[in-house]
Structures are given as C-alpha cells and as structure tokens.
Design a protein around this nucleic acid. Structure first.
Lengths: 221, 221
DNA sequence: ATTTACAATTAAGATTTTGTTAAGAATACA
DNA sequence: TGTATTCTTAACAAAATCTTAATTGTAAAT
C-alpha cells in the first residue's frame, strides 16, 4: 500500500485530506510545519508528498528544495504562472490550486505514483549513461564510472530532468545544503570532474552549459 | 547453481540469452510458446523466469498470471507506461524493454534472485558469507565467525539489501534504537570489528564504504 | 576586433570522512 | 560480587573529497 505524506498547517484541511486518502486506499502521515516535515521525512520515506506552501517554521519552498527522489504535489492558493514555473524548477512534480476538487487531486496523485513506479526501477537512463539510484552506481557504455557523492547528486539532478536547464542556484541549493551560497567555482569543478571521468569512455559531451543560466543534459552526440 | 527459465519464441534471442546466462554461471531451460512454458513449469521449478510477452499459443500475459512464487522478469518491446504498470500488477517482478543491454538484464536478474533467496529461507548468502537469521550463526568459507549482537544486526541489514548502499542514518535507526544520535563513531568501530573477524579467514573486503553515504556489501573479491 | 563576462581546467591546500586503536562504561552472567 | 563480554567514546592517522584561486579558453556585446 502506498503512503502519502500530508504537509499542511491547516488542521481542518489536513484531516480532510487524510480521510479522503485513506478512503481511497492510501496510508497517510501528517506534518503541520516545515520543520516538522523535515524531521518526519528524515525518519520516513513516503511514496508521495502533498505540500502546502504557506507553512510556519520553514516555508514550503524550502521544504521542497530539501526533497529529492519523492514526487511532490504542491498545494497553493497562489495561482500565478510565474510562481508555478519556479516551483516546477525547484523540483515539484505537479501543482494544484486551492481550493481544488478532490477528484482532480486523486487523479494527479495516481499519475505521479504511476510515474514513480516506472522511475523507481531505480535506473535513470540518458543516452549511454545509466544511473542506479539504489546502488549509487553509474555506467557509461556499461563501463562503471566512480563518482563522488556530490558528483552523483549533480548527475542525478540533471538526469532526473533531462533536456531541462537546471540553474546554478537550484543546483547549489539541492547539492550542498550546508555550505554557504557563493560557491559557483566549486560547482564548475565538480562538473569538470564528471566530464573528465566520462571522457575516459566517450569523446562525446554529455553535460552542456547554458550560457549565463546553468547546465543541462546534452542530446547531441 | 541457480536455474533460469527462458520463455521466448524467437530462437535467436532465446539462444543468445542461454549463452549469456550460462557464461554468467546460471543453468537454463527454454520454452518457445506459451503452452510449452506452462508444461515446462509444471515439471520443473526454476529460480527465476525471463518471459517474453509476444508468444504463440498462450500469451505472455496469461502465462504470467499462472505463475506464483517465482520471480518473473518480463521482456517486452512495448515501452509504454500503462502497459508496464499492468504487468507489475499482474505479478511481474520487473521488466526490461527490448532491445536491452545485457549488463542491465544481468543486474536485474541478480537483484531478483537475491530477493528470492532472502524470502525463501532463513539463510542469507553473499559470496563466501552465510548468515542464518534463525540461529544467529555466521560462517565465512564455512568457518564459523563469532559476531556480537550488534555486529550481527549490522551484517544482516547489509546482506538483506546486497548491492544497495545503506546510509549511516538508516543503520543507526535500525541497530541501536535506544541510544541518542551522535553515535557514528560506534558504528565505525562495529564495522571495523566485523572486518577484523572476517580477515582471519579471507583477505578480501566484504564491506565497502561509500564515501559520504554509508556502507554496502562489496561484490569484488 | 576588442572588450567583457562567463566557462573550463588545473593544482594545491583545507576540510571531511573513514579506519584503527585503546581505554573506560555498561551489560550479562556465574 | 566479581568476571567476562560487549558497547561506546575519543583520539589520531590515513584516505577521499571539496573548495579555492589562478590561468586559460570561449561566447556575447560593443
């Protein structure tokens, strides 16, 4: 049975969602603040997360940035397009505007869970590259490539959103959560190192720089 | 030695798989139609089944539904998500999309066989190590190795998820439930002790550190 | 064409994490 | 109670990784 985490400070909504979900065959867990959510997620791994944006403690945006590997559906009152784009760039899987129809929410949940099932075979593929999120192994043309933790995280982030530009600031947010901010030089070195390790098995370029913005996986060989 | 059943009507592919598998240390048996497969499985019990979907006689889907207790990896040309989901719901353990990389297929086979080993007996095996979850006995190359309770718990956790990295925090959660948090030093010592005890009977490394993440069982000897 | 801004690479030093040892604390057991 | 075993902690050395900064290369802007 799939487990869904509900992160919302409004107790009425949170409980309504819990009922709705358990009536539809899901397990649930609840958190009522950003900090509580982070703690809960460090202890448990749900299959999907419903995240309200307006949270006490730590804002929903910041909770979102800390999550990797679990699809997040953001629930927000703000409907504007610009905001939506930013959320998707921060790693949200989908977005519903409050108030929402329960049927719509259930449908979107089902879509994301199916996607996740397919993804969670554990292996991300892009051209010749395979990245196993479970074993932390990466191969290029079936040659094992040893990546460090940070290099792996960068490549996983890129391969999770192929053909999409990942801004440098998003990368820095997601990769090194603890360090300060202005460490772009470091990022460049990591990417350079990944490329060097890949070059041993292929002349082609896999990571492409998007001038002034960030990086993306490169389609062309 | 593990036996794998190959169910595919394409003789060329079937034989290619047989060679690949026997080169990698598996016994094989072959069937070329759905009806033949059902007959073969009534006579023999392989450890794992590779099943092509497009079969004459009885379709792969229907063969799948008749199988219980043996992990089935479905091989299909159809890549669409909906189809994959249905197969998994019909009881497939995993699926690969044709054409597939041999390395990937072997990896997925290994994963499923290990899972099956865990399920079916109280004995976990990994390379030269045997761990009996019921009697709490551990042997290395058939030499008994005396492990303490905590050491045993750590090794069991690792061997239950071979080839998968276990994070330090997960380990701490699962092993010493009562103690506070900052006990990484303790973990290091336990692992060091397991290694020392193993070193008496083998020079090879069985527990591998994954830098910055955790530990995993090490394939290479 | 030249300037400017950013990107890529390299190498060195700083930092973090791991592995081992030894000593004391906690626990189990006779 | 005393003894043996196991667990935890701390200290340090060794290894791997990360960051910084200097340098060179490359794309955009003027």
């Amino acid at each position: 049975m799939k487990t869904i985490a509900i992160i919302d400070d409004d107790i009425y909504i949170s409980d309504m969602l819990r009922e709705l979900l358990s009536r539809n065959g899901y397990n649930t867990m609840q958190a009522y603040s950003g900090t509580e959510a982070v703690y809960m997620l460090s202890e448990n791994t749900p299959d999907l997360i419903l995240l309200d944006l307006m949270l006490p403690g730590l804002s929903g945006e910041n909770v979102l940035k800390k999550i990797t590997g679990i699809p997040v559906i953001v629930m927000s009152a703000k409907a504007d397009v610009h905001n939506k784009v930013r959320l998707l760039m921060d790693g949200a899987a989908d977005y519903v505007t409050k108030p929402f129809e329960t049927a719509e929410l259930l449908a979107r949940i089902a879509v994301q869970l199916r996607k996740a099932t397919v993804m969670n075979s554990g292996i991300l593929e892009f051209r010749d590259i395979k990245l196993n999120t479970e074993t932390h192994e990466v191969t290029l043309k079936d040659n094992p490539v040893k990546l460090t933790k940070t290099e792996f995280a960068i490549l996983k982030l890129l391969m999770s959103n192929p053909s999409q530009v990942i801004t440098k600031s998003v990368m820095l947010d997601r990769i090194s959560l603890d360090t300060p901010d202005c460490v772009e030089s470091s990022l460049k070195v990591h990417i350079s190192n990944i490329r060097r390790k890949f070059r041993e098995y292929s002349d082609s370029d896999y990571i492409e720089a998007v001038w002034g913005i960030g990086f993306k996986m490169s389609e062309k060989s």
